[in-house]
Design a protein around this nucleic acid. Structure first.
Lengths: 151, 151
DNA sequence: CATCAACAATTGATGCATCAACTATTAGAC
DNA sequence: GTCTAATAGTTGATGCATCAATTGTTGATG
């Protein structure tokens, strides 16, 4: 119990932080975190298919479809198909939306900066690495368990 | 952009890690993270009112009600009122459920341990402190923004 | 002691994410 | 070339969390 308690606390704290962060973030900036992730990815990749977007952002395909539909309706993105493959749907940000997002990044960065107040650059770097390490561990764990180790 | 990019990445990574962690956790152990948090709290506090539970675990009151209803139906907890205040509902784990949860902690701890593989005890401690610091920052940020600084 | 504000819990409505089932398109096997 | 399997996206059903509105209870004020 005591040996695992720090780890369990980390787990619970991670939950708690993330949850609060999400709700505050949405309240402050009026966009769900999923949508932010999608837009962030699109801003950095110019043109992608829905399926790769779905894989990269790690959101269910159905959710991606619904988000993109709304974003298209709002004029934020364009969706289109290409001649060589009529299955894949490509997604791209509208030019105006790009500018808009870039601009709103300043507000976001202000928010993010405040939540990471009191961290030195070195600590931030370290924090990020820790998160990445956990991320790697998590994906590995699943594979093992599905491999038959579980139960 | 570059100055904030590490911070933004932390934010996004935090999201990603948490999400994957939750889904894997649920898949492996068959309980939603909310429920785990509730049960964890109950295991450590013997007897508690719904409203304090709701505050401590930071879940919406409606969600708490629904979780507890199910848990009561499953025989995991008991709910009752006290003579001196007919408003508050008190919640307590059944003895058998306590044992069951304690026992299932070993499986959980195995899972948690794997996700935190490769961390020294000192690093874990540090990680936890970082998370706590972010948590404090987040709650502070909200107050400021609601105070009128936003917009 | 009647009224009103507060507190506690519940319910209904809504939004979002996921799974499963389905359609359409492409590529491979024979 | 046709049949089958795989791929891409969509839709419906379900579960969960949140907000808003409601009920019931308590305490304070006049």
């Amino acid at each position: 119990m005591t040996a695992c308690s720090v780890r369990l606390q980390i787990f619970l704290q991670l939950q708690a932080v993330n949850k609060e962060l999400c709700s505050k973030f949405e309240a402050c900036l009026g966009a769900s975190t999923s949508r932010v992730e999608i837009l962030h990815y699109l801003l950095q990749h110019e043109e992608v298919t829905q399926s790769t977007l779905q894989r990269e952002v790690n959101i269910d395909a159905a959710a991606v479809t619904r988000h993109l539909k709304q974003l298209e309706l709002a004029g934020t993105i364009v969706r289109y198909k290409k001649a060589d493959d009529q299955r894949a749907t490509w997604v791209k940000l509208e030019e105006e939306a790009k500018r808009h997002i870039e601009q709103s990044y300043s507000e976001k960065s202000q928010f993010v900066k405040e939540t990471l107040d009191g961290f030195s650059e070195a600590e931030l770097e370290q924090f990020l690495q820790m998160l990445s390490k956990v991320s790697k561990n998590v994906s590995r764990v699943t594979k093992n368990h599905l491999g038959g180790e579980n139960k």
